[in-house]
Write a protein that binds this DNA or RNA. Structure first.
Length: 309
DNA sequence: AACCTACCGTCTTACTTTGG
DNA sequence: CCAAAGTAAGACGGTAGGTT
């Protein structure tokens, strides 16, 4: 159920906040796979696991329970899952801003949006956002629009009924593109996301996500499994046309590969990693990176003398 | 009929506060 | 002092309905 906004927009924008250290970290995050840290941190459960993994990689606590912006109380960090639409443009879902008791205008004053591919959980890129005069003006229209029929970009939603979960502020899916934060042209990187296939695989294998394997051109239809001694077979023309295809795992079936769905993906759609080797990126995407080899982005980025505040 | 996208109601974890 | 309850963070997961 959609409710009226609780917080009126501020009359003037807050100042822009910068941090050179965070800018370097964000740059280094390109090509970073979030899966291994997400699994190591919280046992691969919870819908915020990849956001927690990102915060850990940036050198923060993976969880906080304060309604202040994540980075030094000045810049909010948001992970946005994206995927390719049929025409090659990037799509995304609406974004949860904060609980309804928290001021969303403050949260949105300065944001680092990090975009990660929904299938592979690899970071594709990022944008810094400041809610300046023009953006504030546009978003403040949500305060006067009808929650249902006015199609506001900022909204409050909650479950119906007295036992409903606590309502929260959301940004519409349109908003990121309108603000120029998501490209509106087709892109090279990222994958289609087939929610029906994903759901049916998870249903078949007790809620476990499918495992991905990179298709090497020289392997042909039978790709050796990187996790065990088995082989994977998939429709390779589909892999290289669409980006990925469901795969069947032939015996022998290693421990990690049993009771899991499988897909073969085209590695050319992964951005070149900025802070790890190709091998580290590939192993991570394939779920074959041993826990002791998980590395933290913050440990590989030099903290600058001047944060430029 | 198959496929695709938009919609929207949760699901899980961790820290903080309160009560016995 | 310890357990339970409360609160906020973190987007995800499943499906209805539109399109081809």
């Amino acid at each position: 159920m959609r409710l009226p906004l609780r917080h009126p927009p501020p009359s003037a924008p807050s100042p822009r906040q910068r941090c050179e250290h965070l800018a370097l970290l964000a740059e280094a995050a390109r090509g970073l796979p979030l899966g291994p840290a997400a699994r190591a941190l919280s046992g691969a459960r919870g819908r915020g696991r990849h956001g927690n993994a990102l915060q850990w990689h940036l050198g923060l606590e993976p969880h906080d329970s304060v309604p202040e912006p994540d980075w030094e109380g000045r810049i909010e960090i948001k992970l946005i899952s994206v995927w390719q639409l049929a025409d090659g443009r990037l799509g995304c879902d609406r974004i949860k801003v904060c609980e309804v008791g928290v001021d969303p205008w403050h949260k949105l004053s300065n944001v680092l949006f990090v975009f990660a591919d929904r299938l592979t959980r690899v970071v594709l890129g990022h944008r810094f956002f400041h809610l300046g005069a023009a953006s504030l003006d546009a978003l403040a229209r949500s305060w006067t629009l009808d929650p249902h029929f006015g199609r506001p970009d900022l909204m409050v939603e909650s479950r119906e009924g007295p036992e409903g979960m606590s309502p929260a502020y959301y940004l519409s899916r349109r908003w990121l593109s309108q603000e120029g934060l998501l490209p509106t042209e087709p892109v090279r990187f990222g994958y289609r996301f087939d929610a029906n296939w994903w759901r049916s695989v998870r249903a078949e294998f007790a809620g476990r996500d499918p495992l991905l394997t990179l298709a090497r051109v020289d392997h042909g239809e039978q790709a050796p499994c990187p996790r065990c001694r088995g082989t994977l077979r998939a429709d390779l023309s589909r892999v290289f046309e669409v980006g990925w295809a469901p795969a069947t795992h032939a015996m022998p079936l290693g421990e990690r590969c049993a009771l899991r769905g499988h897909a073969l993906i085209d590695p050319r759609r992964l951005p070149e990693p900025a802070a790890c080797s190709d091998e580290e990126q590939f192993l991570a995407v394939e779920g074959a990176l041993p826990e002791h080899r998980i590395w933290r982005l913050a440990d590989r980025v030099r903290e600058p003398e001047d944060h430029g505040h």
